[in-house]
């Protein structure tokens, strides 16, 4: 994850409290989704950014996961994400995100 984005995640988590924060991802592949999710839960796996060694344990979802989709206005979801659902490998993204949450999510 971009270093500036990591800094922002860290700062906002300190400001609002980790239990009040949710991170939503839009990554194009399962692996990239997993890496971003790992960064905001267990810490930066690439050891490059401000979240290196920082385990925030934040709640994190990909926008294509049903937990998010089901809460969004269906018309808006269809307009904004509908086509990407056809393009992305949603099943493998869901599987990867679940696995990261099970391992590292604290909230």
């Amino acid at each position: 994850m971009d270093l500036e984005n990591q800094k922002r995640v860290k700062d906002f988590t300190e400001e609002f409290g980790p239990e009040n924060v949710i991170v939503i991802l839009g990554a194009s592949e399962a692996e990239a989704s997993g890496l971003a999710a790992e960064t905001v839960t267990n810490g930066d796996p690439t050891f490059a950014g401000p979240l290196t060694g920082v385990s925030l344990g934040l709640k994190v979802y990909h926008v294509c996961e049903p937990e998010i989709k089901d809460e969004v206005d269906p018309a808006v979801y269809d307009e904004q994400v509908g086509m990407m659902e056809m393009v992305l490998d949603v099943d493998s993204i869901i599987e990867e995100m679940k696995s990261i949450r099970e391992q590292y999510c604290k909230y």
């Binding site: 592949e29 692996e31 056809m86 393009v87």
Partner: peptide, 21 residues
């Protein structure tokens, strides 16, 4: 390998999906 997928292919899928729509 960098997790950014096959970018041209993703574009073609989007164009095809729009053509279907």
């Amino acid at each position: 390998p960098a997790g950014a997928g096959d970018v041209p292919l993703a574009n073609y899928k989007m164009i095809a999906a729009l053509a279907v729509k």
